[in-house]
Simulated scan of single mutants.
Amino acid sequence: MIIDISRKLNAHTPTWPGDRPFSYDLTWSKEDTGSVNVGQIASSCHTATHVDAPFHFNSHGTTIDQLPLELFIGRAKVVDVSTKWLIKPEDLAFIDFSQTKRLLLKTNAWSDPSTFPKEIPQLDPSLGEYLNRHGVELLGVDLPSVDPLDSKTLDMHHALEENHIHILEGLDLSAVEPGDYRLTALPLFIEGADGSPVRAILETIDQS
């Protein structure tokens, strides 16, 4: 079974305050061309479900086209942390990380998909070293950011980069039960970009 964990892109998709909203427009219609409809899109790289490249918060960091695709395909573990407002290493102590390179945190804090949240749970930057020690290479969240919305220092972003962990944000995990899945969340091949939207899906794994 395939579970779509992407947020829909349309004119009503909430964006970071002040950022460019998503738009899709029909540039040419079939009536105009005689053969095809041709559309165009405009968007921030950080709208809805997206990958942050290190260049997003580090001017010397790698760009989206330089990230290895194997980061975004493979076994992933969904963990429910919806009872926590500050998520720390001890909140993940029960996890068996032996087959987990990709960790997706379900907070359920972005409950209204039509509005941008006013506040979100906080991830303790000590998670960077903790997750690296357990072999995690990708952290996904159902939030607009891994840092507080008003953060200027982006401590969690930097803690993850320092520990070689990449970032997937804006997931919709509302219909996903905790457990192990196969994740596919490929960023677009945009040269020099600081991020990219993705179509993220989970596939159930046969446990037999």
Results as ranks from 00 to 15, higher is better:
S82L: 06
V51D: 06
F189G: 05
N163S: 14
D147F: 00
L123A: 00
E137A: 11
P144K: 03
R20F: 08
T27Q: 09
L103I: 06
S23P: 04
P117E: 11
L103A: 06
H157N: 15
L188W: 08
T83M: 08
V136D: 03
I190A: 13
E70K: 14
R20W: 08
L105I: 13
Q207N: 12
I120G: 02
D194Q: 08
N163I: 05
F55D: 01
T115W: 00
S111T: 09
A42Q: 15
H134A: 02
K152L: 08
M1P: 11
L186R: 12
A175C: 08
M1Y: 06
W28M: 12
T153Q: 14
V36K: 13
T184G: 03
D147T: 02
D194E: 09
K118W: 04
R20N: 06
K77D: 06
L139R: 02
A93G: 02
H157C: 14
I167Q: 15
S126M: 06
T115I: 10
R182S: 05
R75S: 09
I190C: 09
F22M: 11
R133E: 15
D194F: 00
L104G: 06
T27N: 07
P21V: 04
I5Q: 08
I165T: 03
P68K: 14
P14N: 11
P197D: 02
D65Q: 06
V141W: 01
H60A: 14
L188N: 11
P144L: 07
D155N: 13
V78K: 07
R199Y: 08
F22T: 09
T100H: 03
S114P: 00
V136R: 01
I2T: 14
F97W: 10
V176N: 09
D112S: 12
L173C: 12
D52G: 02
T27E: 14
T63C: 13
S6A: 08
H12I: 04
G61S: 07
R20D: 05
I167V: 15
S114W: 01
V176M: 06
I205T: 07
E90G: 04
P144D: 07
D180I: 15
F116K: 07
D52E: 14
H158N: 12
D142P: 06
K152D: 10
G128Q: 00
